[in-house]
Every structure is written in C-alpha cells, then in structure tokens.
Amino acid sequence: MKIPWKIQRQTEWYLLFVIIVLSAFLTVVNPKFFTLENIFDFLRNNSFLGIVALGELVVLISGGIDVSFTAIATVAQYLMGLVISTTMVNNVLLAFLIPIPIGIALGAVNGVLVYYTRVHPVIITISTLNFYYGVLMFLTKGTWIYKFPPAFREFAKLKVVTFMGAQGVPFGFSFFTLLWIILGFFTFVVLRYLTIGRKIYAVGGNLEAARRAGFNIFRVQLFVYSYIGLLAGIAGFVHAQLNQMIQPNAIVGRELDVIAATILGGASIFGGSGTVWGAFLGVLLIAIIKNGLILMKASAYWHEVIMGSIIVLAASISAYQRKLQIRREKGRFAEEQIF
C-alpha cells in the first residue's frame, strides 16, 4: 500500500517556479550565478539559515513561534568557543557536541514557559531572547573569539566532493550543506514517521482536540522548543565554522530572515501546516534574493527593504488564500470574523 504523500501542496510548486524564474533572470544578468561554484558556495553559506529554519518550521507547525533561537545559537557557539579556545582540544567532534546540550536546555526553558504561562510565544521568546543575549553580552562584554585549534580550522574546508575551478581554485560540495540536508531529512522523518511529529501536527491543527484525545501537550511543546534549541546549537557550530570567528552580535537580528523563509515555504503561522521541502525552498528563495542583490550590486541597505516587502507580501498572499478558503467553505460572514 502506498504512503499517503501530500503531493498537492501548491505553495511549494509556486515557490519552485519563482525560484526557477528568479534564477534564470539572475543568470541572464550575471552568468556567474548559475555556476556550480556559486551554487555550492551559496548552499554552504546558507546552511546556518537552513538548519535553524528547520527548527522554526517544527515550532510553527505546532502553532507556536520562536524568535529566541538566534540568542540560543549565539550562547551555544560562544560557550563552545570559550571551551575550545581555552583548552585548545584538537577535536572537532567534541566541539560539535558542546553546543547541543546548551541549545536543548535553553530551548526547553522556552517550552516550559510557553506551556505554563499560556501567553503568546512571541512575547515569551522575545523575553528569553533579551535575557539569553543580554546575559551573554554582559558577561563577555562582546569579546570576539578567533583562536581555534587547528582541527577546528581545517574542518571548515572539508568537502564531500571537490572540483577544480577554472582558475585552479578548488571548490566543492561542503560538509555543512550535507549536514543541512541530513538534518532536513531527519526533521522530515521526525515529522512524518515519529509519533511525536504527528502529535505536533495535531496540536497545531486543533489544540483542544489534542488535549481531549489525551495527547500530552506539555511534552509536545517541550519537544518543539527543545528541537529548535538543538538545531540552533548545531547551527551555532556551523556558523562558527563558516566564519572561523565567534562574534556575540553576529547572529542576533537574523530571526526574521528565518521566520520569513519558513512562512514563504508554506508553514502557516496559525499552526498545523508546513513541510521540510517548503522550508528548504523558502530558505533558498530568501538566499537567492540576497545573493541576487549582491550580484546586481544593489546597496546592502536595500536588503532590509526587500526582505520586509517579501514578508509582508508572503503573509498577505497567505492571508488572502485563507480568506478565499473560508469564503468558499463557510461564506463571507465567517471570513469577516478572522481578525
């Protein structure tokens, strides 16, 4: 018997179409865009964004939202940086393992607070964002870390496949891109084949029904916020690898890119829907736009304007579709009620 795939997820196809059109356009403007080198480079550079977007996806599906993951990633990577730069332990695996429990723990705090206070998770996670980040900045005074053991430095260059570029500069498919894909697959498995994943969809679809069905809501919320914490921890490691430097203020402020990417990818902010594939495409679209702006030599200051417009536009389209759906199903009087 076939597994009931949901192939009719239109958002993803629209997105793919937009990505193709945009890519074609950018290639015409600057042929460098559609080279294997640029694509690999670009996937590598966006692996941080892609990994945390997977976490945000899971939170959004459950009907929540998390804006504190940037602070979690920062705290996790900073503590990792402190440990490896002071001990100079020449082991990347160890470095990789440090941020994970930190991320999970900080995420779990969010989960507990969201469950017990029943206040909108935006308010909770803005608070924890300020708290985590504020404490870190206060204690570290914003000092950068850039003294890493050699293994940590070498690891960043690790490639799964290597090609030779035209100028004799090697390039290739980065390990971090692979990590992103593996985590994407893992998240897909969690959402689709683990009981907890189905409960996440159920809670996001109808919280009261989930409660009545006997699902443990606390466990679900704890899981989703810990999960984004976990991914934020891993992403913190990736970010430190990619930059070979840890600046406490480098990540905070990029929350919205991630949320925008996930929503563009079809995750509903009302909960209950969203796919890994969509989140992947959403990140890709945001990244292509940013990359395109650079290729087109637009001033960096325009980035925010364009990002903001995209978020508002994407949210408008989704609100409009919701409106149409309600109008179709229940008539216009119900649609008026959806503030």
Binding site: V122, I263, I269, S309, I310, V312, S316, A319, Y320, F339
Partner: peptide, 10 residues
C-alpha cells in the same frame, strides 16, 4: 487581514 504580528514584523 494579515495577522498583526507578522504584518508589523515585516
């Protein structure tokens, strides 16, 4: 009818 949180975020 964009939810206020998202609209004002954007």
């Amino acid at each position: 009818s964009v939810p206020a949180i998202i609209a004002t975020l954007g």
